[in-house]
Amino acid sequence: MAAKKTNEEPETTQADVSGGPKPWVFVLMVLTLYWAINYLDGHSGGFNATVYTPHSDAAAVASLKVQKTPEEQAFESGARIYRGLCAACHQPNGLGNSNAGFPPLANSEWVLAPTPDRMIAIVLNGMQGPVEVSGQIYNKVAMPAQGVALSSEDIANVLSYIRRNGDWGDAHSLPLVTPEQVQAVRDSDAIVNRSAAWTADELKQQFPESQ
C-alpha cells in the first residue's frame, strides 16, 4: 500500500488534436443571433426601466391606465374637496348636525333645486340668518364664504358631488354642475357687487327662477 505511485503525467505535446466547430455552427449562431434580436424586440420592453414582464413596451403599460369619464373625475375631485372643507360641519354623510345648527345637505330642497345657482351663490359668499331646511329652522351659525378659496371648477365639482351623490338619496341624480355655470353666477351683478353673506330671503329674491 505504501508503495508510491508513479507519476505518469500525460505528455502535453502538440497532442491536442486541433479541430474545431465547422462553419455551419457559425451559421447556426448567426441564425440564433437573428432570433435573439427578435426575442429582445418582443420581450425586453425597449430596455425601458418602467416596463416589467409580461408587458411588451412602455406604450402598452401606459394604455392600461384607463382614463376616467368626466363625470367620475368631477365626482372624485368634488368628494375630495367635500371631505376637506364641508364635511366638518355638514358631516361626511351629508346629514348635518341639527343640535349644532348645521343644516343637512342630503335630500335638502335647497340642494335639489332644478338649477344650482342658489347653491353656487351660497358657496361663493356664504350664508347667515335663519334658514328652513326639510321643515326645520336653523339659525345658530353662519356659513363662511368660499369664493376666494375655491376656483370655479372646484365649486362645480363639489356641487356636482353634493347634487349627484347616490349614497345620499334617490333624488340626488341631478346633472353635472359645470364650471361655466359657476363662472356665470360669479360674474353676475348680484355677486360682483356683494361682499356680505346671503340670507335665505335675499337668495329667494335674487334667484327666484330656482324655485
Binding site: T50, V51, Y52, V66, T69, E71, E72
Partner: peptide
C-alpha cells in the same frame, strides 16, 4: 403605480 397598474373595472358601462 404607473409601471404596474391594478385591475380596473368598467367605469361607465353599467347605469348607476
Amino acid at each position: 403605480l404607473p409601471e404596474a397598474p391594478v385591475n380596473q373595472p368598467f367605469t361607465s358601462s353599467l347605469p348607476d
